[in-house]
Write a protein that binds this DNA or RNA. Structure first.
Lengths: 210, 210, 210, 210
DNA sequence: GATGAATGAGGATTCATTCAT
DNA sequence: AATGAATGAATCCTCATTCAT
């Protein structure tokens, strides 16, 4: 009504900087202290006042989500790069393995991600969507090529992956997870098995949704 | 010392009852609110004073552990009953499936358990030991029978199982986990696969320990 | 009304023993933790139930007083023994020095005593009375013999003594207090001093009370 | 760093006011209830939220120390003013008497101070240092002038003073302490006494330290 | 916009005291 | 008489959140 005729003014330089600082600090603090960590601690580490933190992220969820998205982004981009690999099964395997490494370098962030997935459905929706698309394209290629059973959705796959990584605190978890992923990918490979119902695609690719 | 001939007096009836009540309440409250839930809430639900709760379980960990053990016990006993099944692979599959159901009825308890496993090493040691033995005997039978690859330890298996179940909040998780377990058990089955290193037992059963 | 025709039955043997135990424990616990120490801790150290403690000493004051009296008793008896010494000034000096040693071996009890003196007037009355009489007889002899100024009451003297001992925690307190007592006794000795009002007895011995 | 040129922003007016209020309230509450008094009570009397109290004084010790220092400061300044008096013995006597009045107006604070001196060594160090210097300069002048014995350190003197004041609750304590101080200062005065070792300075002033 | 002070609800924990066994 | 379980009031302390500057 006054002089704010346009919705989005050019944001002040320090505002942008502060936002960035808070995000960076939040990642570290959440990683160390879990998603219940004190927001005051985040502000302190970011070198801004608590009020500033609240201005940028009015709720804890808001902050959490912002941090979360960055992590998800990186995992998604990983998939993009593998999309063009020759062997689709191998591409999938490599994505999963890279994911393990990713988690290994992020440590505590994993718990935060996992909890986030559980709690905020909006947040879960976004991330699941993003990651689902990423992994889905890898998975589909393998299924279409007849190399993998089709009754496992990208969501399933993500769940399995996150789950296995969840125990990342115990010594030797990384080797363990790599072993487990091997087993899992083996299980996914299309093959005749004596005494087992043929792994027919129960949910046709075309019908899968969201 | 004269009149204290026995170390442990017969515990008072109400004490026993209260202890039981608190445990029951704790299971429910922790299931709903996670492991950070208010102890006051536990006491209230148990219908005892907060002081009584503290008398029986001086620290949150003590209470937690007590609740936890019961859950682990039930899972272990499940394995005992399956030990004598004919088909070892099937027995394992059934234990895993029963486990899913078990988790399904416990809801939030899972998160609590998972967190507990991460933090308290003593607790983790106990439960891992207990469950490892339970699942290990099932696993070994299958490996010895030549039906499963031997490079996956009981610990790995537990990790995978817990991990998959960890995402138990999302809609449809149960079906998803059952699918994933199928895939997983398939991956475990001994079979020749084209282009894959034969799944030789890398760690002989006899050598596996702890 | 029934078979309790006499007021004081012979107390049960274990009751006596327990009472004694509690007193002993209380002395230790109060010494260490001050007069606010937990009664439960006292009971535990005494090896009796908290209920037993309460039966013998219904209030904290009751227990405190009982402990306190024993200490006071010992200090009083010390004075008795010095009553017959030749040199009255020396006798007083020796009582004070012995008192220092007494405090030195009791450590934290001193704080308890001091606090007790401040708070409970009944308790203070008893102990002041007892100690006042003890030290008073020593003091009076010196005054009557014309060796000490008469304007300092036994109460004053006690106050000074307790006060000086109060700082018993600091390193070297004992030597310090002995020095101070020397100075004090010197100040008490009757002597002409230039520029000072002659130390006439302001409160005649006969008139002093309580 | 650009806009944070000065380390310490001008403190907010209300913050200063609140801090002051809390200190004032603490002095009163500690005086009445001793050093264990409820912090909540302090906050209530100060008319601020408990959180505010904690912001200014994160621990009970912090608050205690702040209150404590003010008291010590006043006593020290008292000594400063007496430094230039003609008669050094009289100056000392006057400081001690003023000290009594000071304590008289503070009531229970004394107990708090005394307890504080015992416990926190840092606090004790500061106050002892401050007061020792104050009283030491008075004492030294008298010793140098040959009017007082030199074997009593400022620390001793403080101990005696505090100690005597410690019993400040009993009726008539003030008159009593004044009498005792008289006796004490008399004892300190250099004079030949029959049958006593001459009060030679055992620890030369120059050698005394800390 | 940034800051950090103020607030108070919430939850942990301890003990004095009572009472059932 | 002795015991120790039960109780809850009292207090500590931490944050999330709001607001004055």
């Amino acid at each position: 009504m006054d002089d704010h005729t346009d919705q989005t003014r050019k944001p002040r330089a320090d505002a942008v900087r502060n936002r960035e600082r808070v995000l960076e600090a939040a990642k570290i603090v959440f990683s160390a202290g879990g998603p219940e960590a004190s927001l005051e601690a985040v502000a302190k580490r970011a070198g801004v006042g608590i009020g500033t933190l609240y201005r940028h992220f009015p709720t804890r969820e808001d902050l959490f989500e912002a941090v979360y998205r960055r992590e998800v982004d990186q995992l998604s981009e990983l998939a993009e790069q593998l999309k063009n690999a020759k062997d689709p099964v191998d591409a999938l395997r490599r994505w999963l393995r890279s994911g393990v490494e990713f988690v290994a370098t992020k440590k505590g962030m994993m718990a935060a991600l996992a909890l986030a997935v559980q709690s905020s459905s909006e947040l879960a929706a976004f991330s699941m969507d993003r990651l689902t698309k990423a992994i889905g394209s890898l998975l589909d290629r393998a299924v279409v090529a007849g190399e993998m059973r089709g009754d496992v959705s990208p969501e399933d796959l993500l769940r399995a992956f996150f789950g296995m990584c969840y125990m990342h605190d115990q010594p030797g978890w990384q080797a363990s997870v790599l072993r487990l992923l091997d087993v899992f990918v083996d299980g996914l490979r299309m093959q005749p098995k004596p005494g087992m119902r043929p792994a027919k695609r129960t949910t046709p690719i075309a019908k899968r949704k969201r």
